[in-house]
């Protein structure tokens, strides 16, 4: 069953077409990578899938709902209930502890639950750093807090934008291991990345060029492919 169904979407900014006639589907439990050079439309695609933007043409069905037609208010609800976001820059709130950063997502979703937030941090191996501020955490640790925050409300879709883009090799591996574990547990993951090694972890990689789907690479053949 397809969790995400993108049908012939376009996104035009003035005279610039960021996306042109892109169609794509993602099954429940699938791990998809989106690759492409700068300006290829990755971020636009990510924003549309993440309910933060709407296409100028075409349809996007997320869990059966056409999010291209929904109001801003309903998109906020979709984002809150169905999507877990992981950012390249982590985007942690600097005056809140790791635990509180995770609880923020609970606060806007339902009710903050400290035990559950601690469990999410434990899942990413940061239970002992719960009371630390972001400034007291390494980049890898901050990204793991970001992952814990994305997971806390049990989203249908984990949307990661360059999740290892700001990390060293060791932390990149830790983060990829966590994503792999999540995928094994049945999570649907879409990762936007420049890194072929990250894309290799995905079951499928969609390569965007000039706002169009240039090709789709299956399995861990991205490193070998000419992208």
């Amino acid at each position: 069953m397809n969790l995400l169904e993108i049908k012939d979407i376009s996104k035009i900014y003035g005279s610039v077409a960021a996306l042109q006639n892109v169609s794509l589907s993602v099954e429940q439990g699938e791990w998809l990578a989106i690759m492409g050079p700068s300006g290829s439309g990755k971020s636009t695609m990510m924003n549309i899938i993440g309910c933060m933007d709407k296409p100028t043409g075409g349809s996007v069905f997320l869990d059966g709902v056409d999010i291209s037609k929904e109001s801003a208010k309903n998109l906020t609800i979709m984002r809150r209930d169905k999507i877990g976001l992981i950012f390249q820059q982590f985007h942690l709130i600097n005056y809140l502890t790791a635990l509180e950063n995770v609880m923020v997502a609970q606060y806007y979703h339902s009710l903050p639950d400290e035990k559950e937030a601690l469990a999410a941090l434990e899942r990413v191996g940061l239970k002992d750093r719960a009371k630390h501020l972001p400034s007291q955490l390494s980049g890898g640790e901050q990204q793991r807090v970001c992952i814990a925050r994305a997971l806390i409300n049990y989203p249908m879709l984990i949307l990661a934008d360059e999740p290892t883009g700001n990390l060293d090799e060791t932390n990149e591996k830790i983060v990829l291991d966590i994503l792999t574990q999540l995928h094994k547990e049945g999570s649907t993951i879409i990762v936007v990345t420049h890194d072929p090694e990250v894309a290799d972890e995905a079951q499928r990689t969609v390569v965007l060029e000039h706002g169009r789907v240039a090709r789709i690479v299956k399995g861990n053949n991205v490193k070998g492919a000419d992208i």
Partner: peptide, 16 residues
């Protein structure tokens, strides 16, 4: 601004 954007991305409504 980033914090506000993040909160909105996490599902905070304008009312919140």
């Amino acid at each position: 601004r980033r914090e506000i954007g993040l909160k909105k991305a996490l599902g905070a409504s304008n009312k919140s």
